[in-house]
Every structure is written in structure tokens, then in C-alpha cells.
């Protein structure tokens, strides 16, 4: 736990870091998040002003000069005239409160209405939460063009995305602050979240409802791409898994389809068709593995496969005993599944 100079510097500038970041509600990248950010700033301004006014009044009440009357310790007996005057002021303050509250309520109501409205033919993506990863299914007009992936959502810029949220076990909550507010994924219920990304980029999302031991490591990335790029990416995802490029990868495929891996994971185009773990057909093309825990590199894949319970204690992937060669081969194969 060596102190890190950059962290210390960041600690001194808390307010400067407040507005940006890959997962910030105040760094909106889509109309929904933008109107929410505007709402946050407005509420903050109004509420902050009220707060300052109240404190100012308390300050004045404390330090204003008073006519000294009577013994210092003797309790005052309020005069009815001043009491009545104060009564008027208090009533005025209450009326002002009511007005402010009513205005804020109305604003929030209008904002709700505008969030639910969207224009254009949306891209429908099914997102299903599991302990502790996300299954992403891109729908299409024909089921054979559906794509099932995991822990990463790619969306075209400028087109509304309709996320159909569900859960396979406990309650999760999908939250990508840069693009939209959060929406829960509840067993036995179907929720929908619609958002649009306005600029290309990758936006971090995270599970926002406590869902068990690895709640902290249940993140995903929303990657917004230009529409044509997105379409070609989606076409690539529709293809079965890439053939091994060399002998090592071929050996890796033998391991992946012959060992316990295949009982949980699908690699389309091979015998591996398990459905209880994430689809690995194009795992090498994703930015992260294990729901945002590690970057997708060959080394990280190796570390993860070798000992998942140390990287992410409690997750449902067991430590499958592999020899060093098998481990090298299978991580090479996985990294090659672009």
C-alpha cells in the first residue's frame, strides 16, 4: 500500500475530477443523460441557494445586535407584537418553500416525460444479469441474425437503443451514467431502458443493486460506434468462432472444447455449447473479461483461467486444473477469438 503521488494530487482536487470520467453522471454523452445532468445542476443550484439562505438567516439570527434587556440568564418573555410579525415572516417562508417544491416537482415530472419519449427505430438489445456478469443479446428481424455476447454492449451512435432488462438470478441494476439513469433487473419482471449515445466512445456501466459477493466486479462497457462500423462489427459477431491461426491455438481449442470449459461456455462453431457461462465465441474482441475485471489480453486471460477465484473470489467459474502448456494454449486460443 505505497502512497501514490497521483492519488494524493487527485485528493486535493476533488471538485475538478467531479465532472469527467468514464462513468460519471455529470459527463453526459447522450440526450437522456444530458437532460438528467441539467436537472442535477438545476436542483443543485436551487437547493444550494436555499441552503445558503437558511444558513445565512441562522447566522444573522445568532449575531444580530440585540437590545439588552433584563438579566443575562433570565428567560425572555416574548412580546406578542414581535411574535406576530415573525409569524408573518415564517408563513412567507413556508409559502416560498411550497412554491419551490412545486416547481421542482413539476420540473422532474416534465423531465420524466421527456426521457421516455424517443425518436427513430430503436436497436433492441436484451440484457440479462447473472451473478456476476451480463448476457447481451442483439436482436434482429430474423432470429438467425441474433448475436449473443457478454459483458460489453456496442451501440450505433445516434440511434436509440432499447434495452430489455431481465435477471437470471437475483436483482441487478443496469447503470451507465454517461448515457442514462439506472434501471433494475428484477426476476419475474421485464424492464426497459431506452437511451441514445451521441458521440463515439466507451462508457463504463456497472451493476448498481447489491447482488452478492462480487457486486463490485460486475461492470461492463458500452461502446458507441459510428453506425456503419457498428453494422460491420455486428456482422463479424454473427460469424462462428475464428479458426485457430496456429498450432498453439489449435491445441487451445482442443482444451477449450474437451475440458470442463465446454460444459458452461458456448464457442459457436465448435462442440462447446454450454449456456450457463458467458458466450465466448468472440471473447477476444471484447475489451474486458470477467465483467470488467481484467482487460482482454492473453496474459490476463491466462491469469483468469488459471485461478479465477483469486481474481474474483466467489464467482461461479471453478479453477480447472490445466498444465502450463494447456493454459498457454487455451489463453492463446481465447485471445485469438476476435
Amino acid at each position: 500500500m505505497r502512497p501514490h503521488p497521483r492519488l494524493a494530487a487527485a485528493a486535493l482536487l476533488p471538485l475538478l475530477t467531479g465532472c469527467t470520467g468514464p462513468q460519471s453522471a455529470l459527463d453526459p454523452q447522450g440526450p437522456n443523460a444530458a437532460s438528467l445532468a441539467w436537472l442535477i445542476w438545476t436542483f443543485t443550484a436551487v437547493c444550494g441557494l436555499v441552503w445558503l439562505l437558511v444558513l445565512l438567516t441562522v447566522g444573522i439570527a445568532l449575531w444580530r445586535r440585540r437590545a439588552s434587556s433584563g438579566a443575562a440568564d433570565e428567560p425572555l418573555r416574548p412580546e406578542s407584537a414581535t411574535e406576530r410579525r415573525k409569524q408573518g415572516v415564517v408563513i412567507g417562508a413556508v409559502v416560498a418553500t411550497v412554491l419551490i417544491i412545486a416547481t421542482l416537482t413539476l420540473m422532474s415530472f416534465v423531465a420524466t416525460r421527456s426521457l421516455t419519449a424517443s425518436s427513430g427505430e430503436p436497436l433492441t438489445v436484451r440484457l440479462r444479469g447473472y451473478q456476476w456478469w451480463w448476457e447481451v443479446t442483439y436482436t434482429a428481424d430474423s432470429p438467425d441474425r441474433f448475436v449473443t455476447a457478454a459483458n460489453e454492449i456496442r451501440v450505433p451512435v445516434g440511434r436509440p437503443v432499447r434495452l430489455e432488462l431481465s435477471s437470471g438470478d437475483v436483482i441487478h441494476s443496469f447503470w451507465v451514467p454517461s448515457l442514462a439513469g439506472k434501471q433494475d433487473m428484477i426476476p419475474g419482471r421485464d424492464n426497459v431502458l431506452t437511451f441514445t449515445a451521441e458521440r463515439p466512445g466507451s462508457y463504463r456501466a456497472q451493476c448498481a443493486e447489491f447482488c452478492g459477493m462480487q457486486h463490485a466486479r460486475m461492470a461492463l462497457v458500452v461502446i458507441a460506434m459510428a453506425a456503419p462500423e457498428f453494422e460491420s462489427w455486428l456482422d463479424a459477431q454473427r460469424q462462428p468462432a475464428a479458426e485457430p491461426a496456429d498450432e498453439e491455438q489449435e491445441a487451445g481449442r482442443q482444451v477449450a472444447t474437451g475440458k470442463a470449459c465446454a460444459a458452461c461456455h458456448t464457442i459457436r462453431g465448435t462442440r462447446a455449447a454450454g449456456t450457463v457461462g458467458p458466450d465466448l465465441t468472440h471473447v477476444g474482441s471484447r475489451q474486458t473479461i470477467a465483467a470488467g475485471t481484467l482487460p482482454t489480453t492473453r496474459g490476463a486471460l491466462g491469469a483468469w483461467i488459471a485461478d479465477p477465484q483469486t481474481v474474483k473470489p466467489g464467482n461461479k467459474m471453478p479453477m480447472v486444473p490445466l498444465s502450463a502448456d494447456e493454459l498457454r494454449a487455451v489463453s492463446a486460443y481465447m485471445a485469438g477469438l476476435k
Binding site: 474437451g258 475440458k259 470442463a260 465446454a262 460444459a263 471453478p318 479453477m319 480447472v320 486444473p321
Partner: peptide, 8 residues
Amino acid sequence: GDKLTTEQ
């Protein structure tokens, strides 16, 4: 044996 680990 080839689908589960010993612990499982």
C-alpha cells in the same frame, strides 16, 4: 470427470 472439477 471431464465436465466438473474435483471440488465441484
